[in-house]
Design a protein around this nucleic acid. Structure first.
Lengths: 205, 205
DNA sequence: ACGATAATTGACCGATCGGTCAGATCCTGC
DNA sequence: GCAGGATCTGACCGATCGGTCAATTATCGT
């Protein structure tokens, strides 16, 4: 076994492959990505990919597990903690952080999570979403549910779609990409809070 | 040629196939759906599918063209019309109507539009989205852009995800599916207007 | 009743899919 | 320098993909 952790800078093969795979999965889809494509983009052979990861599914699992686990703890905290305004505020911030920190994985999971049933890690993610939706919906009016759904789904998809429609050299998203993550985070938190927190002079429920 | 329009109730084969295809495309993805699956679900042979539609791509085109064209006229009106509050209100209503009226096609286009480059009708849809984004972004602050993005993407994905995560027999979405389209429309319009229209006492920009 | 056309189908094609396997090559501790 | 595991690769496999084609059956105007 190669002595890990000795050369922190040298890129490990399995990491390159994982990065490439996540990139491809997010852009052209899991079923739309072949092991050959991943291998080509990363500069290896298809056999090498299957040496580092037992299967295409294992590659997907490794790619999105960190993001799913972050989502799980976030949802767990929100579900058990009481729905005080302060707690909501903390949740919103953490949620946006998750979106920004795991963009590709979130993109992949959000857009394809439903069609990837049977894959354990995806099921875990879907279960977490259901728990979140349940916590939101219980004892809320339809408009309240919509407010939550639009806010969270909107924040999620606004980022995802931003990265989706406006490719690297697109002229439109110069404005969007010109902003740092900090600016994006602040704007997102602002808008979501606007919907979900009892803003000055307006009742949230 | 069979005398069309004579028997308005009798389901035509090509229509059944189109319905089945759209359903499959939306649930398991375009690349994830095989012609064989479509044929099986519709009760025909793969050859019959290719008799009615020249190719898998032609099937996709026929499935989402109506929705894309509705989007195009909607975006066109919004882009040229001035951004008065009344015009915004009309746009929001029409937008939500489009979402509700073309759920499956919207689902398909939203979730897979980016990975289906090269297909003309999809490109047209993407172009329309870009025009809309451009109209929204021009001369707006980051927070304003976010408000628009979150509102439209949120409304879109809240519906799509609702249909996505909460399958037919899911216990969670009983609350959601228990509502009629009219109720859903009203709630959606309310929430989106809340974000995009200068509500009483709050300035939109 | 009959010919024409629409509709449907199974057999078949080349390409590509995910995955297996037996070597080649590299690296490292001794 | 050499043994042995880690790494990498090409050849190959069965399955399935989208699509073609010739042949069969259903439908209908006359």
């Amino acid at each position: 076994m190669p002595t890990d952790a000795t050369l922190p800078s040298r890129a490990r093969a399995s990491d390159e492959l994982l990065r490439t795979a996540l990139e491809q999965f997010a852009t052209v889809g899991f079923v739309g990505t072949s092991l050959q494509q991943i291998a080509d983009h990363a500069g290896y052979s298809k056999s090498s990919v299957l040496y580092h990861y037992a299967s295409k599914e294992a590659l997907l699992e490794a790619a999105i597990t960190p993001a799913i686990e972050r989502l799980e703890v976030l949802v767990g905290e929100f579900a058990e903690g009481r729905r005080s305004d302060a707690a909501r505020g903390v949740f919103i911030g953490s949620f946006v952080d998750l979106l920004l920190g795991e963009r590709l994985a979130v993109h992949l999971f959000v857009n394809q999570g439903h069609s990837l049933g049977g894959i354990p890690i995806v099921e875990r993610g879907n279960a977490a979403v259901r728990v979140l939706a349940d916590a939101i919906c219980s004892g809320a009016t339809l408009v309240e549910q919509m407010r939550f759904g639009v806010a969270l789904a909107g924040a999620t998809y606004a980022l995802v779609a931003g990265a989706t429609f406006f490719g690297d050299e697109d002229p439109v998203n110069e404005t969007l990409n010109a902003h740092t993550d900090e600016e994006l985070r602040e704007a997102l938190v602002d808008v979501v809070s606007e919907l979900l927190l009892p803003a000055d002079g307006r009742q949230t429920r």
